[in-house]
Design a protein around this nucleic acid. Structure first.
Lengths: 149, 149
DNA sequence: TTTCAATATATCGTTTGCGATATAAAAAGA
DNA sequence: TCTTTTTATATCGCAAACGATATATTGAAA
């Protein structure tokens, strides 16, 4: 018999991995309609909150590395969603800004958060319990993203 | 000002996505030592529970599609971790079985669940609270993986 | 039986995700 | 000033994910 610790049903990571993938898939029909992917939508969320950010700030905000974010931003630039220009104070930086098209996408995607929200509501996940779920996930993220030194 | 529903801090999916990635990254040093990736580790968990499964059963168990699992299994076969042979009753199926090497990996990875477990323990995620966390994630997975018809 | 639909895998193309590495600019030290 | 180190991006290669599609078998229907 296999040890309990190796059973798929006892794995936190497998649950997070599956829930994350399935929920991202739920976004797909809503986003692809506008030529967007889920990570690109996350970039938009970051830029709608604060426009004209250097690549590094976006990467840190999304807990990603620049080697993931850079090609993603290049694709979005090619689509005319944002622009990338060299920083004036620091020439190493690339400042990412939304275009008009990027700003307008927010109106076009206005119903996405609500559509997704209603798709996940269930017995144990409700407006009352989500704060607790958020707290647990934030704690995990905080623990795992803490500086290793 | 941006609407509350668009703030990154209010997104369940972003949290799941981030927690999933960071926790998978925590597995990396433990698995790469044995030439494994995290999804390959999931396949091993499935096969350790029940050996000699058709591709479709493994895919369903992991909530993945065969177009993801097939190449993954082909790589693992090339590494000598498992074998793939045509089903006898149903010639469409490919039955996936562990090799000796695949079985021995379980002993070599014996400490992985405990190492990971201690890496995520924190204020809000403890042996007492994980059942509730599991229940919420399972509900989300159940809701999103339910047959669309 | 013959045809048609359903099932099981596989292939293809694109986008991520990420470790490793390269390059350029700024900051820190000697 | 002249190195040396750090920082900000970018490039490269490989392994997922996954939508779309192809192929082979099986099962069902006419």
């Amino acid at each position: 018999m296999i040890g309990e610790e190796f059973k798929l049903d006892n794995q936190l990571c497998f649950r997070l991995y599956t829930a994350s993938r399935l929920l991202s898939q739920a976004y797909h029909p809503l986003l692809s309609e506008h030529g967007l992917t889920y990570p690109q939508y996350l970039v938009l969320l970051a830029l709608w909150e604060k426009d004209a950010q250097p690549v590094n700030d976006i990467a840190k905000r999304l807990f990603l590395e620049t080697n993931t974010v850079t090609p993603l931003l290049q694709r979005m630039e090619k689509e005319g969603i944002l622009t990338r220009r060299k920083g004036e104070k620091d020439a190493r930086q690339m400042i990412v800004s939304l275009t008009g098209k990027g700003q307008e996408l927010q109106k076009k995607l206005a119903d996405v958060p609500f559509t997704i929200g209603s798709a996940v509501i269930c017995d144990s996940v409700t407006p009352e319990t989500t704060p607790e779920l958020f707290r647990m996930l934030d704690d995990i993220i905080g623990k795992l993203s803490a500086p290793k030194a």
